[in-house]
Simulated scan of single mutants.
Amino acid sequence: MTNPFLRTALITGAVIAVVNIVFASLEYGLPNLPWWFYAAQLLLLPAMLLPMRYFPQASVTPDYLRRAGLFALGWAVPYAIYKFAHDVLSPVFSPGASLVGYVVTVALFSLIFAAVRRPGAGGRR
């Protein structure tokens, strides 16, 4: 893993964690967030390291479904931490609804990313 690659993964994980803390504090109040919520956000740092290698690989994969699958694998773990840590804070938390929302969101975004980030798309008209 190259140094810029490592830096990008760690910065991305930190930004996602901060965004999740901001959104959760706006919804529930910063003093009301439990300690485990902050600990879960720390999991985003290592969770970005392994899947980050899928993004460059996906951007050069010509097959649309394989490219979408690589994007889905890249976002699966970090988004799971982001979504489930926030969803569990809700007093009306439903594991099934949360899981369905997670799967649908990862599928939609991976299909959108695969369509937008196709190989050779840059500069060609």
Rank of each mutant, 00 (worst) to 15 (best):
M48S: 04
F109G: 04
A24E: 04
Q57F: 02
F71L: 04
F55A: 08
L6T: 11
L73A: 15
E27A: 03
S110P: 02
W75S: 13
I11S: 05
S94Q: 15
P4K: 05
A114R: 04
Q57Y: 02
G122F: 12
A68E: 06
P95M: 14
P51N: 06
V88A: 13
W75N: 14
V88C: 08
L33N: 02
G29L: 01
A121S: 13
L50F: 01
V100L: 15
P119S: 00
V18E: 10
L6E: 06
Y54K: 01
G96F: 13
L70R: 10
V60P: 01
G101T: 06
R118M: 05
V106I: 12
R66K: 12
T12G: 14
A121K: 14
A85L: 11
A115D: 02
F109K: 03
L33S: 03
Q41I: 00
G122L: 15
P51L: 08
A85M: 15
A14H: 03
P56Y: 03
S94L: 13
L73M: 11
L108I: 10
G69Y: 01
L33H: 01
P4V: 04
V15E: 12
L111Q: 07
V92I: 13
V77I: 15
P34A: 07
L73F: 10
A9L: 12
M1K: 13
A72F: 01
P78S: 15
V15P: 01
G29H: 07
S25F: 00
S59P: 00
F23W: 00
F84H: 15
A9K: 09
R125N: 07
D87A: 15
P62F: 05
F37T: 03
P95F: 08
L99M: 15
A40P: 00
L70G: 06
I11Y: 09
A58P: 00
L50M: 01
L108F: 02
H86N: 14
L43G: 14
G29E: 06
R125Q: 06
R118C: 04
V116E: 07
Y38A: 06
L6Q: 12
P31Q: 09
M52Y: 03
N20F: 01
L70A: 08
L6H: 03
Y28C: 01
V104Q: 02
